[in-house]
Nucleic acid binder design. Structure first.
Length: 380
DNA sequence: AAGCCAGACAACCGCTTCGAT
DNA sequence: GATCGAAGCGGTTGTCTGGCT
């Protein structure tokens, strides 16, 4: 049995909208609101299916839509968010006021993707293509990079999905706390009492906060603190090891002075890759403390690293390259990154100081975007 | 001038998710 | 918890337009 059509399609018009149709739709919605999209066409006197009307309104007729050329800032935002979120156009659109997901998607496909490709950057992974087909050179590291990026992305999405579920639980407290509220997760005003909105932003935001912690730690340069790597057993230690090798200090997650709190995921036995959720604060000895923010997805990535990721320093180094590589994806015609101007320079480990400073700025930029984003963003 | 082609963007299709019952 | 309809979403297609031969 086939899928039932969304509406009766016999006699309905398809294809481009005429100005008359636009006017009818616009006039109806301005007067009555859209209500049920399925019922709208008949009421508005349109020979269109409700879905088509909805799309036309959302992508074209809505008064709060900005049309026309994308600004440099918008281009940068799209590229950066795409590096972070992938093809999640609606999520990206929430950070670009007055732009629709469809418009952003089209702009990406017709402009930005090609521009990145032309620059030698893979628009999917946001990594420079060191050769025509990535691994075509036979260098297994190229293929491994792609594989690791895919693993990261997969784990990130999984973690995000879980966080969304968790945040829903948080934003939907027991009924007695939201007396009179609708079923929506958005707190509603009641007649007699103002139901306080959650004081904190959705937990998903912490993903980026923690990323910032990671990246800031990774990209903090301290030439006076050269150390030899001491372990290659896991992601955290490897990242530290790489940081040390390349002249970075240890204010990454491990050995940080951040106090452990109940609920934090911590590593209790580095040799056994054992992690646990703290029931009480500060119950883990300082030296073994590898704090991960429990409210975000990163710990899940680290969890997953038990079996697959970052088990050797080479993989950790790949992660560093990923950060570097994303940075180079500045807005096409406005290329700024020194690493792009001199491909491979950063990858060869020569000029990390400036490159990592740029990377830090890059992630800070994304965080600023997030901080400036509407609190009801579906992603953050 | 006509035909071809590629780029750009609007619109559609089908799957997923959400919310009400 | 199951079901169903509505809405959301992202990939894909269709159409228009301008440039080139």
């Amino acid at each position: 049995m086939g899928r039932s059509p969304c509406c009766e399609k016999v006699g309905l018009k398809k294809g481009p909208w005429t100005p008359e149709e636009d006017q009818k739709l616009l006039a109806y919605i301005e007067e009555h609101g859209h209500g049920s999209w399925r019922a709208l066409p008949a009421k508005a006197g349109l020979q269109r299916c409700g879905k088509s009307c909805r799309l036309r309104w959302i992508n074209y007729l809505r008064p709060d839509i900005k049309r026309g050329k994308f600004s440099l800032q918008e281009e940068q935002t799209i590229i950066q968010l795409h590096a972070l979120l992938g093809n999640r156009w609606s999520a990206i659109a929430t950070h670009l006021p007055k732009r629709t997901d469809n418009e952003i998607k089209n702009y990406w496909n017709t402009h930005l993707k090609k521009r990145l490709t032309k620059m030698g950057i893979d628009p999917v992974t946001h990594k420079p293509k060191t050769d025509a087909l990535g691994s075509a050179s036979g260098n297994p590291r190229d293929a491994a990079n792609l594989s690791h990026m895919a693993q990261w992305e997969s784990a990130r999405l999984e973690a995000e999905a879980r966080l969304v579920r968790e945040s829903k639980l948080i934003s939907n407290p027991p009924q007695n706390q939201l007396a009179g509220a609708s079923s929506s997760s958005v707190p509603q005003l009641t007649n007699n009492a103002v139901v306080a909105a959650p004081a904190t932003r959705p937990q998903c935001l912490d993903v980026l906060k923690a990323w910032q912690g990671v990246v800031t730690g990774l990209f903090t340069f301290n030439s006076d603190n050269l150390q030899s790597p001491t372990s290659t057993l896991n992601f955290m230690e490897n990242t530290l090891a790489i940081s040390s090798v390349n002249g970075f200090n240890d204010n990454f997650l491990g050995n940080s002075s951040i106090p452990c709190e109940a609920g934090d995921i911590v590593k209790v036995d580095s040799s056994a890759n054992e992690w646990k959720c703290l029931e009480k604060s500060n119950q883990i000895p300082e030296l073994n403390r590898e704090r991960l923010d429990n409210s975000m997805g990163l710990h899940e990535m680290a969890y997953s690293s038990e079996g697959a990721w970052f088990q050797d320093s080479y993989r950790a180094e790949n992660m560093m390259e990923c950060y570097s590589d994303i940075m180079v994806c500045d807005s096409g015609d406005h290329l700024q990154s020194s690493s792009m101007a001199a491909p491979g320079q950063n990858l060869n480990g020569t000029n990390y100081a400036s490159t990592f400073e740029e990377n830090k700025n890059y992630w800070n930029t994304i965080l600023n975007l997030v901080n400036a984003s509407p609190s009801d963003s579906p992603v953050f």
